[in-house]
Amino acid sequence: MRISPANTQRIMVVALWTLAAMTVFTLLFILGYVLYHGLPHVTWSFLTESPRRMGKEGGIFPMIVGTAMVAGLAVLIAGPIGVATAIYLTEYTREGKITAIIRFGADCLAGIPSIIFGLFGFVFFVITLGMGLSVMAGALTLAIMVLPTIIRTSEEAIRAVPRSFSDVSMGLGATRWQTVTRVVLRSASPGIVTGIVLSIGRCISETAALMLTAGSALRMPHSALDSCRTLALHFYTLMREGISPAHAWATASVLIVVILLINLVAYWLMRRFVARTV
């Protein structure tokens, strides 16, 4: 028996909406589950104390500091490099062999899994450059990892600035550099910042690469050459070794709340950017 087109339409619409609904439900379930099991254990002392007995007791303050240091440093390194690359690709050259090669490099880098970044960071930063398992080694590894994202989002943001703005600026006697810094970047900044904010999110979520480069010390990192354990890795350790499910989910909910905030900021920035360029 053949199903009539009208019925196929009905069936497919129902099926597709079911898929979409299940996806959204999955998200809500994950968020709900983590927050439900974790938030009750998130107290002021949990956020501000050091862990005791491997994290069974005490808090996660050193992990919060470590995560902030690693993510902050990574973006501090990758941000300028990524934006400069985007500026070069859009304002300082013509499309050609060189841009194709640079884009190829960024595209390939974007596809490399984080465990490979971890291996590389371990052999290069930790061992060859002698940094040891440290905040710095982790941050440098993550910087390379998020570089392609920052390049791509910055490039898109810069391309969204009308070419005529550059014409006008140069026509008024600006050098190219003045034009880029005072006109183009100024207009593109919400888009660029969105990319950077999302990169911070990625750094905070990362585990595999940091396990091999930043280590898992429970101590408070006092300098960039100290080892540190990030929130995501702390959660993993507590969970996997069954140290304390309550503290594990509490750590996860701190992580999830931060990620939610980051996405909200990015979403808000992006809307502002779109509203301004249209």
């Binding site: 005529s164 006008v168 600026s169 140069m170």
Partner: peptide, 14 residues
């Protein structure tokens, strides 16, 4: 470009 100032066909305010 400062000595030879230009106005375009379409107004382009920054």
């Amino acid at each position: 470009r400062r000595r030879v100032g230009m106005v375009y066909a379409v107004p382009i305010p920054l």
